[in-house]
Simulated scan of single mutants.
Amino acid sequence: MRYRRADVKGGTYFFTVNLAERHCRLLVENVDALRNAIRVVKQRHPFYIDAFVVLPDHLHAIWTLPEGDSDFAMRWLLTKAGFSRQMPMVDRRSASRKGKGERGIWQRRYWEHLIRDMGDYQRHVDYIHYNPVKHGYVKYAVEWPYSSIHRYISCGMLGNDWGGDIASHVEGGYGE
């Protein structure tokens, strides 16, 4: 059975991408390697990063693809591979992963969601920026260094105090 993904050319998508070992801190310990991998992919296959947060063992992102292009899967494949190539060969690999030439750093699949409208977009941007607070890494979203919230604050779209006890003020909070 083949997994079917959304296919909207020029679409805006929300993603959750996880490490295979969910107890690791690999992403924040190697955030420059992740940034480099993304930069290389963006140079070859442009897209816009609307929002992004890197946590120790997973990341969330919203990307908008160019008109006529819906191939986010190739971009994630290249990003994950580019990051993995920068890591030392110390990860455990199953026979299946070895047979496919995979490192075993990332979970094979990831979650994607096609953004439907501006309300959906705003909810997902807020979710991304609030995620470090939700996981207990910081008290306020601005305190997390690996987040696009800093761009939103510098542009005046959010205040420095955004994202403290926000879950109690938003209907439904930000549960996963």
Rank of each mutant, 00 (worst) to 15 (best):
A81V: 10
I149C: 08
R116D: 02
E171C: 10
Y140E: 08
V28C: 13
T16D: 00
Q86N: 10
W63D: 12
Y146I: 03
E176G: 01
I128W: 06
A51S: 13
D117I: 07
F72S: 05
M157N: 07
K9A: 15
H113R: 09
M157P: 01
G159T: 14
G119H: 10
M87G: 08
K42N: 10
H135D: 05
F52G: 05
E176W: 09
D7E: 13
F15R: 01
P56H: 00
S84Q: 04
G173R: 06
D117P: 09
Y130N: 03
V41I: 05
H129I: 01
Q122R: 12
E143A: 11
V125I: 10
I49Q: 14
S96V: 14
S96Y: 14
Y137F: 15
W162P: 03
G173P: 09
D57H: 06
R5P: 03
P66D: 10
A20N: 12
P46K: 08
E112Y: 02
W111G: 02
I49C: 14
D117N: 15
H150D: 06
M1D: 08
L27V: 02
K9V: 08
P145R: 07
P56W: 00
T79H: 00
R35E: 09
H135L: 11
G104A: 12
R103H: 10
N36L: 12
